[in-house]
């Protein structure tokens, strides 16, 4: 309707010039933002896109390489058979003998088929045991920090040192369990259980902190409702708070498990090594991560091939766990929204 006063306004205060020329003041098409500002804005936007590329490209590279080199190795036989012993000597000896000689004496010189079964089982056992140790303790500790000892010094100390412990290099956890457990039992000390202890040390603070975040999301009204109905605080935690936070607790724990499953350093000095299946928590064992490490250090093609296959398998497991965690978390937020 009526734009009555289209006349330029008088300068309100004599003494200093207008911010915009009178004609510019009301013309939004006039470009008053300087070329410099405009350029800076453009350059910054491009730089931000580049930053994202810098983060996403290596991910793409890693996954591409893994699929290219690892996918072909992985098959049912690979997942279930023992790990072949890879030495330079076998290949060297076979190079010098004729096929007829091989046939006559039944020498098998074809390279052994790659297998990773024992490492998969070892990974599952050590990670599973670590989860069984760390998840209950972590969640109970989180309950202490967020429900029982709220606002006490001890609770904030636990929280603080859990955060600090998340930053402790994982190899230190391996060395800790080596001194505290393995050396006490000599060579028998190395086992999936010892590795699980080291992995549990690694998982514990992660589980505790993520569980605490989840408990914090549970609205106080639920706790109050329990108390108002005559419930004990502990009953409130068990029957109301923990169930309400359950999806988040599961998702956080799964992420911690995924992290532990991929760890190599804590396992290195605690699990020993084996090439054949060991389903017991005791006795030397091996994990996928450990096999990748030794395979990557080797100069032999078969060892490298084993490492690629193991890496593909391990990343599949870890991504699977992460995806599951995400799925549980998204389900829960949907449930909460109604």
């Amino acid at each position: 309707m009526t734009d009555t006063a289209l006349l330029p306004k008088p300068s309100t205060q004599p003494g200093f010039g207008p911010v915009l020329e009178p004609s510019q003041r009301t013309d939004v098409r006039a470009k008053t933002v300087s070329a410099g500002r405009r350029r800076t804005d453009k350059v910054a936007t491009i730089a931000l896109w580049c930053a994202v590329l810098a983060a996403v490209v290596p991910l793409g590279a890693v996954i591409t390489v893994l699929v290219a080199k690892g996918f072909g190795v992985v098959n049912w036989h690979f997942l279930t058979s023992d790990i072949p012993s890879v030495t330079g000597q076998t290949t060297a000896a076979c190079r010098d003998i004729t096929p007829a000689f091989r046939a006559k004496y039944g020498i098998n010189c074809s390279p052994p088929a790659p297998g990773m079964g024992p490492a998969i089982v070892g990974t599952l056992i050590s990670t599973g045991l670590a989860a069984a140790l760390a998840i209950p303790i972590g969640i109970l500790g989180a309950v202490y920090c967020n429900e029982i000892g709220v606002r006490t010094r001890l609770a904030s100390a636990i929280r603080f040192f859990a955060d600090v412990m998340i930053g402790v290099p994982s190899i230190v956890m391996g060395m800790f369990i080596y001194t505290a457990w393995v050396v006490r039992f000599g060579t028998n000390g190395r086992s999936a259980f010892a590795a699980a202890l080291a992995l549990a040390c690694l998982m514990l603070p992660i589980v505790l902190r993520s569980a605490e975040e989840m408990l914090r999301l549970v609205p106080d009204e639920l706790r109050h409702a329990n108390l108002a109905l005559g419930g004990r605080p502990s009953q409130g935690v068990i029957r109301v708070v923990l169930p309400a936070a359950l999806p988040g607790l599961i998702s956080g724990s799964l992420l911690a498990v995924a992290r532990a499953a991929g760890e190599t350093a804590p396992v290195l000095f605690t699990i020993g090594v084996t090439l054949s299946l060991n389903t017991s928590p005791f006795g030397e064992n091996t994990t996928l991560a450990q096999q990748i490490f030794s395979g990557a250090k080797s100069g032999l093609p078969l060892a490298n091939q084993l490492a690629w296959g193991a890496a593909f398998t391990l990343v599949a497991i870890v991504f699977g766990l992460s995806a599951l965690a995400r799925f549980v978390a998204s389900r829960s937020s949907k449930v909460q929204k109604g």
């Binding site: 499953a261 990748i292 890496a311």
Partner: peptide, 11 residues
């Protein structure tokens, strides 16, 4: 963040 460090090393 989820990629195990040994895999970074291997690659």
């Amino acid at each position: 963040a989820a990629i195990p460090s040994v895999v970074f090393g291997l690659v």
